[in-house]
Design a protein around this nucleic acid. Structure first.
Lengths: 221, 221
DNA sequence: TTTCGGTATACTGTATACAGTATTCAGAGC
DNA sequence: GCTCTGAATACTGTATACAGTATACCGAAA
């Protein structure tokens, strides 16, 4: 028989709500001053409170929202200290992926990475969000290539959180082109085949990102 | 005024259920053949299905459980491939902590780490679970000392999952003492003050753990 | 005007009720 | 005995109802 089993993939309403909330946060429709109230969201989405609640609790567990003691969920704030920690975590995850890729040093993989970078750097007059998305795509390509599902999961967690914290808002004033231009050098580092070199180059790249970020914050009033 | 604000800390029933489930999994009361059904658990705990459901969904999101298509949640299984990936992720996280600690190279911190190790290695006739717990405590001490909340969070995620997968079941047959004995050398590596050295030593330590683990699996029928 | 007290309001957390779907099992037909 | 069909069962997912608690508001007393 040639028929494939239908993977029902029972998508829950809660997942849908979660996605919508994430999108709304990313597109700044939900800001730091908004209060997310279960009943109101449920009414707006025309569903019951139960799945809404599940989505909100999940975002709370992920550190994106927190429950205001006056009721309602709000966006979590991030301190400069925590921002540093987030970048350190990034360095850990992406640095390890770099070590894995360098150890393999597969020419086909390297070629594909370069193609992905070229594709994503083709931005004419990019907005901050475009920049953020392109940068994320490029870095995620490295992670996918490394092929470790746990590292990839953590990568998504970190970037998701960065997004939720509106971290990119601070980059408004930085030199976007400068920050986006150095990705080919990362592949160069992988192609040395030396894990330590790859790690150092990736770590430095992320460190640069952090410093650009801090500059952005400090230039913003 | 010297009074502290009372942080109500509204603990939810769902959190309580979550903890109980995690404990039950760790102590092997819940095995791979058990089916966790919302109604039954709720009845057993004498609460409604709602918080039970929340806890189960959270464990599902964490990859500990999965929804069997015949209904009911079961423990997720892990392949040898995934086990490798889990150890790679560990190396990323703990390796980065090592880099941070080595860069600081604070004598007070090093002293405290050694004390923690000594404390945890004092095991007379340890069971596999004792070993697992001690090992985890020691490694977690390094993470706490590094002081990065995201890295710590990921550490807990990884070890939580390892626990859920009953990963330590495979170590039943391995030489426990051999595996527990090398932690002081980790502190030695930190005290070189060299981040690359620290990283390599930690990574190698974790790699050793992985190989011991594989040996264990392969010797188990 | 400020402070106190109490009631109304708003919101979450928990319980229960309802609907839909996949699985199981018993019985009819062969 | 074996296969097919359909009803019963056992679940989850979603909606709604209920309870408790914290905040806001408003009016009275100092």
């Amino acid at each position: 028989m040639a028929l494939r089993s239908i993977t029902t993939q029972r998508r829950r309403l809660a997942d849908e709500v979660y996605d919508q909330l994430v999108n709304a946060i990313m597109s700044r429709e939900i800001g730091p001053d908004d209060r997310l109230v279960q009943e109101k969201l449920a009414a707006e989405l025309d569903i019951s409170r139960t799945p809404v609640r599940e989505a909100l609790l999940r975002l709370e567990k992920e550190g994106v929202l927190h429950l205001a003691n006056s009721g309602g969920f709000r966006l979590a704030k991030i301190s400069e200290e925590e921002t540093l920690e987030l970048y350190q975590a990034r360095a850990a995850i992406e640095g390890q992926a770099a070590r894995i890729l360098a150890a393999r040093n597969d020419p086909a993989e390297m070629k594909q990475l370069r193609a992905t970078i070229r594709e994503n750097e083709k931005l004419s007059n990019p907005s901050t969000q475009d920049y953020f998305a392109a940068n994320r795509s490029i870095h995620r390509a490295f992670m996918e290539m490394a092929g470790n599902r746990f590292l990839l999961e953590m990568f998504d967690m970190i970037w998701g959180r960065a997004m939720a914290f509106h971290l990119f808002a601070a980059i408004e004033n930085t030199d976007i082109a400068k920050s986006l231009g150095n990705h080919m050098a990362l592949v160069d580092a992988l192609e040395t085949g030396d894990r330590a070199t790859a790690l150092e180059v990736f770590t430095a790249h992320i460190q640069d990102g952090f410093e650009l970020h801090l500059d952005g914050i400090r230039r913003t009033p």
